[in-house]
């Protein structure tokens, strides 16, 4: 599974340009899914399971897209100005390398600041692709790039850009592989454009019209020096989301997840996130409303070019989700 993770995180797929990730996912699951389709927003939707009496139509969503940048201007000397796609912060840009969809690579640096204590604004940053003039520059306005950083295997801990949310994409792929049978009608949605506002999941959920839904996504962890105050830590199991800024998870879904984890003796944590949002919000508000929740992978340094997860949490997330889908669901 580590090799799958590596291939996924090293693929370039900023929001709106998920096709390389989509192709990779499709190849991985095409022999294990009953049906695969791509909708108007580019979501890859795979169905699995043999609905039995008492089985439910369940939608799972893990987003394929990652944060990135988009070129806005190439100046006379060949420097590329850019703006963000999703929640990129200027302080993680300086010195970063980026890779455009075309394969062109470059580095980000910035204008001279009045003081070293200051942080660049995006208007003060630029990408240097080694060009000497506008004519010489292989990048044009509207070209999209993602951060460029190789996968790092530290044993239990794995580091990469785009762990958010390829790690969950890997989890869903692994679930598809391991889920031998399900009494439920399960739709695995590999969604697009989550980082710019849950756009893919919104329309995918409308199309799937699920009875229960949950997202699989990363969440913050509270276990770094002088970091945020949060109960989740790396290595203590996948997190069952209770709330984030955009969602109050349906308590029935939370009970279902916790109950299943306890029955199966799978370690888990409770996630109370004071920020963020996931595809679960989009699912919850679809049509007449859908009971929704989220299984989260605790992750350090989210939206930096080096995001860290614990591989044991990943494996336990797969176990938990397989267990959730293997039995008829009775939300109460």
């Amino acid at each position: 599974m580590k090799s799958l993770i590596q291939r996924l995180v090293e693929t370039t797929g900023p929001s709106g340009y998920e096709n390389q990730v989509r192709d990779l996912v499709r190849k991985e699951i095409e022999n294990d899914a009953a049906e695969i389709r791509v909708d108007a927003m580019g979501n890859l939707i795979a169905r699995k399971g043999s609905p039995q009496p008492g089985g439910r139509r369940i939608m799972l969503s893990a987003h394929m897209d990652e944060i990135g940048i988009i070129a806005t201007h190439v100046d006379a000397n060949g420097f590329v100005r850019f703006t963000t796609v999703g929640g990129v912060r200027p302080n993680t840009c300086l010195g970063s390398r980026v890779r455009f969809l075309s394969g062109v690579q470059g580095l980000i640096n910035g204008e001279k600041l009045d003081s070293n204590d200051k942080v660049h604004s995006f208007e003060q940053l630029f990408i240097d692709v080694g060009a000497a003039s506008r004519a010489d520059c292989p990048v044009k306005i509207g070209d999209v790039a993602a951060f460029d950083r190789p996968f790092l295997d530290l044993g239990n801990r794995l580091v990469a850009k785009a762990m958010d949310d390829r790690i969950s994409v890997a989890v869903l792929i692994e679930v598809i592989h391991q889920l031998k049978s399900s009494p439920n009608d399960v739709y695995f949605v590999f969604s697009t454009q989550e980082e710019v506002g849950l756009r893919g999941a919104t329309t995918a959920a409308y199309g799937v019209d699920p009875e229960i839904g949950f997202a699989v996504d990363v969440t913050l962890s509270g276990d770094t020096p002088k970091g945020i105050k949060m109960e989740t830590s790396l290595g203590k199991g996948p997190a069952v989301k209770v709330r984030d800024s955009s969602l109050l998870a349906d308590p029935r879904v939370v009970r279902w997840m916790i109950g299943t984890a306890e029955e199966e003796h799978i370690p888990y944590q409770i996630e109370i996130l004071e920020a963020g949002g996931t595809d679960a919000r989009a699912i919850q508000l679809t049509r007449m409303g859908v009971p929704s929740g989220c299984v989260s992978i605790p992750t350090r340094y989210i939206h930096s070019p080096s995001e860290m997860v614990d591989f044991r949490d990943v494996e336990n997330a797969v176990r938990l989700i397989v267990a959730l889908l293997s039995k008829p669901v009775n939300l109460e």
């Binding site: 909708d39 108007a40 927003m41 979501n43 756009r199 893919g200 919104t202 329309t203 995918a204 409308y206 199309g207």
Partner: peptide, 9 residues
């Protein structure tokens, strides 16, 4: 427009 129903290109 993009976000209506099952999505619109």
């Amino acid at each position: 427009i993009q976000r209506q129903r099952e999505g619109v290109p």
